[in-house]
């Protein structure tokens, strides 16, 4: 077992336009990337749970050239709407930081 924070070189979230937000999890090397990718922990269901949306709404990508796992979801509010909590959506990845990834 290892926490995602000890495996990733970057975990971040950001607007992808005012109507979507995207989470990038970047790894420093291929073995670590493959480990986390193959663990299946970073699933559409997990991301859907974080944002309380249906799994079909989650776009999940494995982007091998950058050793990156990426997930995009509709924003919880349109950017800047009256119930906005995070205009840039920069702090919406926190639940992933201590996610436990099963060892190999």
């Amino acid at each position: 077992m290892a926490k995602l924070r000890s495996l990733a070189r970057m975990i971040r979230s950001k607007n992808a336009g005012p109507f979507e937000l995207t989470i990038d999890i970047l790894f420093a090397d291929q073995p670590t990337y493959e480990w986390v990718k193959e663990s299946g922990k970073l699933s559409r269901e997990l991301i859907a749970g974080m944002f309380q949306i249906a799994p079909e709404k989650v776009k999940l990508f494995h982007y091998d050239p950058a050793y990156a796992i990426k997930a995009s979801v509709p924003r919880y509010t349109v950017s800047g709407d009256p119930d906005e909590t995070d205009v840039f959506a920069g702090q919406q990845y926190a639940q992933l930081v201590d996610l436990e990834i099963p060892g190999r």
Binding site: K14, N15, A16, G17, E20, T22, D24, L26, K59, F61, Y63, P65, A66, Y67, A68, K70, S72
Partner: peptide, 17 residues
């Protein structure tokens, strides 16, 4: 680096492909 440039297609973008 190849990785830093590849990673940029992810940035602020819903789909890297």
């Amino acid at each position: 680096t190849p990785v830093s440039v590849a990673a940029h297609t992810l940035y602020e973008n819903a789909d890297p492909y």
